[in-house]
Write a protein that binds this DNA or RNA. Structure first.
Length: 589
RNA sequence: GCUGGCAUAGCUCAAUGGUAGAGCAAUCCCUUCGUAAGGGAGAGGUUGGGGGUUCAACUCCUCUUGCCAGCUCCA
């Protein structure tokens, strides 16, 4: 969660109190949960006897407006735990919160009054009066578990946002519209990039030809960069026998995320062989490692694979290409000695920063994912190894003077991680790179190498993805660029547009010449010129070449950019050089 | 998985109990055009699926599948 600035927090937090007050008036039996300010707004949770839907928001919003117009003062009062218990007698959730606070040893709590009828248990701070809220928008109704626990009661949550001026609200609404326009699911349909078919299965992506070009370009680049950095490619199967997953601990720790087993009867025997589709690639890479004895002289080993895995994610979390059930990780496992480990992590970090920058992600947020306190039994391996690893990763980040936040509870069951999240122009964060330590598998699989001392040692395994997964990464790119991919990734780079039939032949020749130099181009010759320009524009093709009588005579092409800019006449050879340059520099246009 | 909502032509949407309609796309015909939509014609649907209520269901009820928002979870 991002840090909120104080004025936004006061504003939205006060608005959430106004919402609660309005709800209590409209639904006197409503029990109040909590109502904090969040990034870009606020919410409040209620326990209601009745169902409410988005249609009710208007009514609630009107009630809130009345409270705002009364310009009620917001005043805090410090009271003792016992007084608080009396005051919130009829509010079971508040009583629970008071008990929690009391258990923490807190003796008094603050209560905020809005006018003299409404009060709420609250730390504050707040606006001085409701009249400071100048505009308001209720967005949605959703269910949310009390205290975020799946086993707790589900409350009704209402989301909204408050503003200090009408203008601020307009800006906010504009942003919402802008985000809707960039939704990769919409763009994916509009630009014929991908689809999801219920008959194939929810969360399984069908890559259409255009998006497959984007992926192919990324994969080519990815391979080249890995080769350059001393990685070797491996290929491994999509399924493995249950024994493998027993050894890896997946059947113990990860089974609910795995597709169910495939049972294969054995000939003349009663037992069956059970196969599982892989949710991770690690066990396979480990088996390659274990295919023969290893020496310290071979280490570090860096094995990478575009490994397709399947995870049976809960139906409610699926989201276009960003959260799917089948995805291809740009996976790698680095197997090294203890003394190589710090350097290897640093190399991976260098690689990751470089890669992110090449795709135009200039701003990154770094997280150190460590164990949480809640589900301590979820983590496998010795506590001492965990402490050591978390400390080492933290030191590496500090050494590099990288600013980072700790993501407490963000560690995988097998080890801590460094996660990089790309920040887009709208401030949204997209996880791609994750560098995870794994001290579960080397032990479980009894991975060893012979050291300089002639003795057996256990290697360290680093598990990492840089892009994350092809699906999520490319989905992110679609949102980031609003479907207008940088030139090197554009499914079509050039549209060739003859003005009339007289130039069809020349245009066709130009298109073939572009193809010969490896530039992806398409000849559009139906309909009017304007309609073809529109077509190329809507397809977000970076370059349009207009070929008319003039151009044929002077042996040039007229260049129009997808930005709408008319660059005038240019020689074809110069244009080819220009495109090649843009491709090389990975420019947007 | 949970809470709430949605599902009508390829797409975007209309029709609120009386046997489905528009624009765009696609198809065919005419048009050959100088920087974001040239004109015309015909076609396209057992209203996501099953069951029920009713003389009559896109419309009401119920089950189911998928999708959307959020919760929880995650590459």
């Amino acid at each position: 969660m991002k840090n909120l600035n104080l004025s936004d927090e006061k504003l939205n937090h006060s608005a959430s109190h106004v919402l609660a007050q309005a709800m209590q008036k409209l639904f006197p039996k409503a029990k109040l949960g909590i109502g904090p300010a969040i990034e870009n707004g606020f919410y409040y949770d209620f326990d209601l006897d009745n169902k409410i839907s988005e249609q009710d928001l208007e009514k609630i919003s009107d009630e809130m407006t009345k409270i705002i117009e009364q310009d009620l003062p917001i005043i805090s009062k410090e009271i003792s735990i016992n007084e608080a218990k009396e005051l919130f007698e009829s509010q079971p959730f508040k009583l629970e919160l008071i008990d929690d606070l009391s258990l923490e040893g807190i003796k008094s709590v603050s209560v905020y009054y809005t006018g003299n009828k409404f009060f709420d248990l609250c730390k504050g701070p707040h606006l001085k009066s409701t009249g400071e809220i100048k505009a308001l928008k209720l967005n949605s109704v959703a269910g949310a578990y009390w205290k975020g626990k799946e086993t707790n009661k589900m409350l009704t949550r209402i989301y909204g946002a408050a503003f200090l001026s009408q203008k601020d609200m307009e800006k906010y609404l504009w942003r919402q519209e802008e985000l809707k326009k960039r939704d990769h699911r919409k763009i994916g349909k509009d630009l014929d990039l991908f689809s999801i078919d219920p008959d194939v299965g929810p969360g399984l992506i069908l890559w259409h030809p255009k998006l497959s070009i984007v992926r192919e370009e990324i994969e080519l680049y990815w391979r080249k960069e890995h080769r350059k950095r001393g990685y070797e490619y491996v290929y491994t199967p999509h399924v493995g026998i249950d024994n493998l997953w027993k050894t890896s601990g997946h059947l113990e720790n990860y089974k609910e995320s795995m597709y169910p087993e495939m049972k294969m009867p054995k000939k003349d025997k009663e037992e069956e062989t059970k196969y599982y589709v892989k949710p991770m690639n690690c066990p396979f890479h480990i088996k390659i490692y274990k295919s023969r004895p290893r020496s310290y002289r071979e280490l570090p080993l860096r094995w990478c694979e575009l490994g397709t895995v399947y995870r049976y994610e809960e139906s409610g979390v699926l989201h276009g290409m960003l959260r799917v059930r089948g995805f291809t990780q740009d996976d790698a496992h680095i197997i090294c000695t203890e003394s190589q480990f710090v350097e290897e992590i640093n190399k991976v970090l260098d690689f990751a920063l470089n890669l992110n920058s090449d795709f135009g992600f200039k701003e990154l947020k770094v997280y150190l994912s460590v164990r949480g306190t809640k589900k301590a039994d979820k983590y496998v391996g010795k506590v001492s190894s965990w402490e050591m690893a978390e400390k080492t990763l933290e030191e590496i980040l500090k050494e590099r003077k990288i600013k980072f936040e700790k993501d407490i509870g963000g560690a995988k069951f097998y080890g801590p991680a460094i996660d990089l999240k790309a920040v887009d122009p709208f401030g949204r964060e997209w996880q791609g790179t994750t560098i995870q330590l794994d001290f579960n598998n080397p032990e479980r699989f009894s991975m060893t190498y012979t050291g300089e001392d002639g003795k057996e040692h256990t290697p360290i395994m680093i598990h990492r993805t840089l892009l994350g997964a092809m699906e999520r990464f490319i989905g992110t790119l679609i949102e980031m660029y609003e479907g207008a991919f940088p030139v090197w990734l554009s499914p079509q780079q050039v549209a060739v547009l003859p003005i009339s039939e007289d130039q069809f032949k020349s245009a066709d020749k130009i298109q073939k010449e572009l193809s010969d130099t490896g530039i992806r181009s398409v000849l559009l010759s139906n309909q009017t010129l304007n309609s073809r320009i529109r077509q190329a524009q809507l397809e977000k093709i970076p370059y349009m070449l207009i070929i008319g009588k003039r151009e044929v005579e002077s042996k040039t092409v007229s260049l129009r950019l997808r930005t709408g800019k008319d660059k005038g006449e240019i020689k074809l050879t110069d244009f080819i050089t220009l495109v090649k340059n843009k491709v090389k520099k990975k420019s947007i246009i």
